[in-house]
Design a protein around this nucleic acid. Structure first.
Lengths: 312, 312
DNA sequence: CCAAAATAGACCAGACTTAGACAATCGCAA
DNA sequence: TTGCGATTGTCTAAGTCTGGTCTATTTTGG
C-alpha cells in the first residue's frame, strides 16, 4: 500500500526508515508482510512531515504523541481525508504560510501542477469546508479584484478559472449523495461572463449535500428556466460577477422569474449582485453575501422530506 | 459466453484468473462446462474492474460484497453496463455507438450523475485512448452538429460541456508526468466561444505525456502568446469550432504568430479549422483533422533534447 | 476439421521488504 | 578554522509477493 501512502508526499524509503530507526509509526502488516497504514497513521505521517519541514529534526519528534505534534505544527484540525486517488506530492512547506499568496504566485507562473499542489495541501490542512471558505472563496474574490484593476491578465484569469474548476470537480466527485438529495441549478444569466463564482457555488452546494446541475456562464433566461423545470430543481443559484451595469440584465431576470416554477427559490451572489439588488428583490431572490450566507439559504430551502445528512 | 462478457472490458484470461485465484465470481455452468454469467455477475465484474482501476488490488477486494464495492468506487447507481445485447451477434463493429446514444440521452435529461456513469462505463471498456477517440470525440462532434442545427439547446450544450470537462479533468489527474515533459498551451483565439474542443485536446495531450497549460476560450492573441512565453511551451494548440466566418480571426492569428517564439509549433483543429486554412498555412500551423492527427503532430514536435535521463 | 472455450501451469514485470552502504549536513570540541 | 561523530535522507542488492499474460492441451459445437 505504499502507492497510497504517497499522498503524504514522503518517499517510500523515508517512511520505512522513520519506522525502523525511530518507530515513528507501527503499521499493521498483511499476511505477506506488507505494510498496511491506517488513516490515523497517514495523518500522523503528514504531521511529522510538516514538523520536519518546519525545522524540527525527525529524531526528536518521532515519538511524540499526535497531540504534541499538532501543537508543534499549529495544525488546528484533523486534516480531512482526501480522495485517495491523488498521487501528487509536495506538502505545504509552512503550515502558517498564506495559501492565498502561494496560490496567486502559482497562477502568475501559469503552473498548473504547482497550483493544484497548493490547493491539495490546503484541502488537507483545512478540510473541504475550510478549503472553500478560507482559500477558494477569498482567492476567487482576489482574482476578481486583480482582474478588474488590470493587474491580472486575461490568460491568468482563464487559467485560474480552469484550474480551480478542475480541482473542485475532483473534490466533489467522492461525495455520494442520497437518492432524495434536493436539486439545485447553478448558472449565470446571459451577459455574465465570469464562471468562477458559479463553480464555487456548485462545489459548495455539492459538499453541502445537494445534487447540482451546473450550466455554466451566460445562458438566456429561457434556457435556465427550462433546465430548472427539467431537473425538478428546488432552487436556482445565480452568480453575478461582471459586468455590474448590464442594462439588459434586469429584464432578463424578470423573464427568468416568470418562466420559473413558483416554488423554486432563487439565490444570487457575487461581486455584482448588490448592483442589481432592486431587480433581485423584485423577483424574490435571496442575496447571499458569502458562503455561510449560501449555506443558510440552502438549509432554509431544503425541505424536511430529505434528512439532511450534512457533511463537513 | 465469453464474447458477450467482453462488455466488462476485461480479457477472458483475467476473468478466469479472478475466478480461480480469488473467487471473485462463481458463474453457473452449462452441461458442457461453459461459464454462464448472470447480469448481476457482469455488473460485479464491472465494479471490480472499476475498483482495480482506482488502485485497489484485486486480491483484497475480490471477496467484498457488491455493496462494499459500490461504496469503494463511489458508484451510487448501477454501473452503466453496455448495451443489453444478448445472444444476437450485434457486437463487434462499434460498442461505442451504444455509449454515444446513451450519453446523448443523459445530456437531454441534464442528468449529471447518469452522464458520468456512462462515461465511466465507457472508460472502463474502451480504455483511456478509446474513450477519447471513440466516445468523447464523436460526442463532441455530434453535440456540435446538433447545436448548429438547433436541435440542442444552449443549456444542454453548456451542461454537456461542463460535465465532459469535469470528467476529463478527473481522468487526467492520475497522470504522473516526468519532470521534463514537453509543455503545450491549449487555447481558443478571441471570438471562439466553444470550449469543448479545447478541453478534448487538453485531455488527449495530457494522456499523451504532455504538460498542458489550459487557457480556455476566447483569448486575445497577445495573451496566448504571453502564456506560451511564460510556460516555455514547445507547442500551441488552437481549437476553432465556431464561428467559422469570423473576419477578425485571420488578423488575430497573424498577430499571434508574430508574438510567438519562432520555435513554437502550432496546431489547429476543430470543425471550423478548415475554413481558416489559408491563414493557418500562412502562419505555419499544422491542421489536425482528428485525434490521431493531433497525436502525430505531438510526436513530431516532441524533441529529443529531453531524453529523460531518468535521474535529476 | 475448425473456432471457441475450458484447464493447468509457466512466465514475467512491477511493487514491496530487508539489510546495509553511502553522502550530505549539523553541532561541538579542539 | 578543522575534524569527528551523530543525524538523516537516499540508494543498491537480493529475495518475495502479486497479478496479468501466455502456452499447451483437451473438450465442445457447428
Amino acid at each position: 500500500m505504499k502507492s497510497v501512502v504517497q499522498r503524504t508526499g514522503l518517499s517510500p524509503h523515508v517512511i520505512r526508515v522513520w519506522e525502523k530507526r525511530y518507530g515513528a509509526v507501527a503499521p499493521r502488516r498483511t499476511a505477506s508482510n506488507r505494510r498496511l497504514y491506517s488513516e490515523a497513521e497517514v495523518r500522523r505521517l503528514l504531521l511529522l512531515h510538516a514538523a520536519t519541514k518546519a525545522g524540527h529534526s525527525i529524531g526528536t519528534i518521532a515519538r511524540l504523541s499526535d497531540e504534541q505534534l499538532r501543537a508543534l505544527t499549529g495544525w488546528a484540525e484533523e486534516p480531512a481525508a482526501l480522495p485517495p486517488i491523488v498521487n501528487g506530492h509536495t506538502l505545504p512547506g509552512d503550515p502558517s504560510a498564506g495559501f492565498l499568496a502561494r496560490a496567486l504566485e502559482t497562477v502568475r507562473r501559469l503552473d498548473a501542477r504547482a497550483f493544484e499542489s497548493v490547493l491539495l495541501g490546503a484541502s488537507l490542512q483545512l478540510g473541504c469546508q475550510g478549503l472553500l471558505q478560507k482559500l477558494i472563496a477569498p482567492l476567487v474574490i482576489k482574482l476578481g479584484d486583480l482582474w478588474c484593476s488590470g493587474e491580472l491578465t486575461a490568460a491568468e484569469e482563464h487559467f485560474a478559472s480552469g484550474a480551480i474548476r478542475n480541482f473542485l470537480a475532483g473534490l466533489s466527485r467522492p461525495f455520494t449523495l442520497p437518492e432524495n438529495a434536493p436539486a439545485l441549478v447553478v448558472a449565470t444569466p446571459a451577459g455574465q461572463v465570469h464562471e468562477l463564482g458559479a463553480v464555487l457555488v456548485a462545489a459548495a452546494a455539492t459538499s453541502h449535500g445537494w445534487r447540482v446541475t451546473y450550466l455554466g456562464t451566460s445562458l438566456p433566461a429561457v434556457e435556465i428556466a427550462g433546465a430548472v423545470w427539467r431537473t425538478t430543481a428546488r432552487a436556482l443559484a445565480l452568480s453575478l460577477v461582471y459586468p455590474a451595469d448590464d442594462a439588459a440584465l434586469p429584464a432578463e431576470l424578470t423573464t427568468l422569474k416568470r418562466a420559473l416554477p413558483a416554488s423554486v427559490a432563487i439565490v444570487a451572489g457575487g461581486r455584482a449582485a448588490a448592483a442589481y439588488r432592486p431587480t433581485l428583490e423584485a423577483i424574490g431572490a435571496t442575496l447571499a453575501e458569502d458562503l455561510p450566507g449560501l449555506y443558510a439559504f440552502l438549509d432554509s430551502v431544503r425541505q424536511p422530506d430529505g434528512v439532511t445528512p450534512s457533511r463537513s
